[in-house]
């Protein structure tokens, strides 16, 4: 699966929390006379999210319920326009991809200090550490449950999440049992990896079958390109 970066017309917010907050803060003032802006909406105090300090929402958290409803609508929206499960997963993946691309610089910026800039992860293991810890903590307020490498294929690595937040309220019908809506998160991971220049394909797989403790266990399979593995061997 070769994923190219979806083109992004117009200005887009920098991170998912600010996206949602900006949307809700503008939605709260509907009586504002509509100045027909083509893209970005301006709240009543004329300050857009671009005027905000990037660290402002550092510790802000979103309501889980509002995220669940939003994500549920995203899945429904995607589902109306697809022919099969793979197509649906591809759409969710593409929805997450731009988030990943933007989250990388944001998280690096936030973990840097003026004297000690945080280095960009350029090799596979630091990248996986970065995804499983800072990225996961930013998105889900906890680290991923484990990082594994495939014993048979040097290209493949796995990040395991026992209970993905995006799937918490989702029950996939039996006829679609292959589907895992965490494909959205896989898209985010893919976006981060491509943003540091490690080309790969990421997919989400159900691994909770028969697991009484973690029925929603999900494995994010990261398959790096041949070129990435070769480069890794050289350095």
């Amino acid at each position: 699966m070769a994923t190219t970066a979806p083109s992004q017309p117009g200005p887009k917010p920098l991170s998912p929390p600010t996206t949602i907050q900006a949307a809700s803060s503008t939605a709260r003032t509907p009586q504002q006379p509509s100045q027909q802006h083509s893209g970005l909406r301006t709240p009543s105090n004329r300050k857009t999210i671009y005027d905000r300090n990037l660290n402002r929402t550092r510790t802000a958290e979103l309501s889980r319920a509002s995220f669940a409803y939003l994500f549920s609508e995203m899945v429904t929206y995607a589902q109306r326009r697809v022919t099969g499960i793979q197509d649906l997963e591809r759409r969710l993946n593409e929805a997450g991809y731009p988030l990943g691309q933007r989250l990388l610089p944001l998280l690096l910026y936030r973990s840097s200090t003026p004297t000690h800039p945080h280095p960009r992860p350029t090799r596979i293991l630091p990248l996986l550490q970065f995804i499983a810890h800072p990225l996961w903590r930013h998105l889900f307020a906890r680290s991923a449950d484990s990082i594994e490498s495939s014993s048979t294929n040097p290209h493949e690595y796995m990040i395991v999440d026992n209970e993905p937040l995006v799937n918490q309220y989702i029950s996939v019908p039996k006829e679609m049992s292959q589907l895992n809506c965490a494909a959205f998160v896989a898209g985010i991971v893919e976006g981060v990896a491509w943003a540091v220049g490690l080309q790969c394909a990421v997919s989400a797989h159900n691994a909770g079958e028969g697991d009484a403790m973690w029925p929603g266990k999900t494995v994010f399979l990261i398959r790096f390109d041949e070129s990435v593995v070769k480069r890794e061997a050289i350095k």
Partner: peptide
Amino acid sequence: KNPFYQLEMPIRCEA
């Protein structure tokens, strides 16, 4: 909050 549930239809949600 389950995207696969249709309103007013029988509930088949594992979770």
